[in-house]
């Protein structure tokens, strides 16, 4: 399954994040965080990739703007964005 249209979920509030999805043939994930180091941003990217796999998504360009969200929030926002990005 691939993302078929642009979508997003979340907010820029503290403890939240914005997830932006765009159609793409493969998986590409880019995360930036206002509270964490670059090492941590890589971990967010890994989490997103794992969740995409679980959801059976094989094509998506994912951008994450994190403001200190817990992992469970990252997962929830990604789930919402995916359901919004699949027709």
């Amino acid at each position: 399954m691939k993302i078929s249209k642009k979508s997003s979920a979340g907010s820029l509030e503290s403890s939240d994040l914005m997830v932006y999805l765009e159609p793409m043939d493969t998986i590409k994930v880019e995360a930036v965080s206002s509270v964490s180091t670059s090492q941590h941003q890589k971990e967010i990217e890994a989490l997103v990739k794992k969740e995409l796999k679980k959801a059976g998504i094989t094509g998506a360009y994912v951008k994450v703007q994190d403001n200190g969200a817990l992992n469970l929030t990252i997962k929830a926002r990604l789930k919402t964005a995916i359901s919004r990005g699949i027709e």
């Binding site: 979920a9 979340g10 929030t73 997962k75 929830a76 926002r77 789930k79 919402t80 359901s83």
Partner: peptide, 8 residues
């Protein structure tokens, strides 16, 4: 979004 968030 709220539903997914609360569930998690």
């Amino acid at each position: 979004a709220a539903r997914d968030l609360i569930a998690n």
